[in-house]
Write a protein that binds this DNA or RNA. Structure first.
Lengths: 197, 197
DNA sequence: TGACAAGCCATACATCTGTATGGTACATCT
DNA sequence: AGATGTACCATACAGATGTATGGCTTGTCA
């Protein structure tokens, strides 16, 4: 698997990406056929098989609109060079797609949490930011984690030293909290998202 | 339209959101019925009609999996209280869904850019972060913007004062750049995304 | 008490949809 | 010359799917 895509296959893949962005659902086999003026659904099957072999797509069998994109493509295009002039099709300078579906595999173990307070400002996590958290009960030294302290969820950096664990803020005006047995680790912060109104 | 949702309707909506996150596609009418142990697809139709009247959902007629969420819901669930115990069904404590589809309407005016340098650290934008940019040629005072300076894209805060415009970094060790006519404003930063490996 | 809405059920049907069978045309590589 | 792979076509079919018709029950509100 993971072979090169042919031109046609790339076109089909692009259309699937486009359809997903536009309609929130992948196209049916016949909708793809319609787009490319294929007279037979079989033709689409062939191309899909190619995409599957290349490892960029999965198809849930016997399920309507069962095409799933594996490599991403649902999101915001990441441009390499910023085109100065016309805001035309960015379709070509695109380096990839920024998305967080791969951050959230279909296991329900990823969630978002709104940050309260400024204890992590020096790590670039501000009040009101969203942190993306993957649920797990252990973490490495220096990981940024979410822990339950006195029933409240806090975001801190985990520092393991001499057999003890501490929740260390990234703000000189806050103190560290030693991770006691009653403080429970909820998960690891795998991303930060901030939105300007 | 835009009336209150009933409890049942809210549950159905939650399930649609959950299904979208999990499978990249909305559920079929019968998949919803299965989830709630409805014996008849008609029951789902009733609830869908309610959701349509409430304005939170659109249904593309006669199209498989034609349910479209209007208010968002494709993304990572934002939890209110962090459940300490079992990572069970997430779809009840969910406050909303973190997503950036609303940031990127299908007009191709939004793109992402990888930040180089630390000139905006004090605004919580670090080296390697992605900024989400909406293309526009003007911006307000205090907006964080992307501008082309000497052919390079930079992220700075725009400060308008006494009829002049300046690109001001959020880092004391960097200097401001006056926005000359040959420096071109590319767009406004509407979001920041950072991913921890 | 009666109107009304919410929530549910049973059944039916045309069409949509994934998938299979069995082909043709045209390049490329051996 | 033969094998191989890509790209396409015609047709068929079982099951999935949206949707309609016609009900039933329960609680609410006037």
């Amino acid at each position: 698997m993971d072979r090169e895509l042919t031109d046609r296959q790339r076109q089909v893949l692009r259309f699937i990406q486009y359809h997903l962005q536009r309609h929130q659902v992948p196209p049916t086999v016949r909708e793809i056929a319609g787009q490319f003026h294929f007279a037979s659904p079989r033709t689409v099957q062939d191309h899909l098989r190619g995409l599957i072999r290349a490892g960029v797509v999965r198809v849930r069998p016997h399920i309507a609109r069962g095409i799933e994109l594996l490599g991403g493509g649902v999101g915001i295009p990441i441009v390499g060079r910023v085109p100065a002039g016309t805001p035309s099709q960015p379709f070509d300078e695109v380096e990839g797609y920024l998305e967080w579906r791969p951050l959230s595999p279909p296991d329900g173990q990823t969630f978002a949490l709104r940050v309260k307070g400024d204890s992590m400002v020096n790590a670039g996590i501000l009040d009101g930011d969203y942190v993306l958290v993957r649920r797990q009960e252990t973490a490495e030294d220096k990981d940024i984690v979410v822990a339950l302290v006195d029933g409240e969820a806090t975001v801190k950096r985990l520092v393991k030293q001499d057999g003890t664990s501490q929740l260390v803020p990234e703000n000189p005006s806050h103190g560290a909290i030693s991770l006691r047995h009653d403080s429970q680790l909820v998960g690891k912060v795998i991303g930060v998202f901030r939105r300007y109104v």
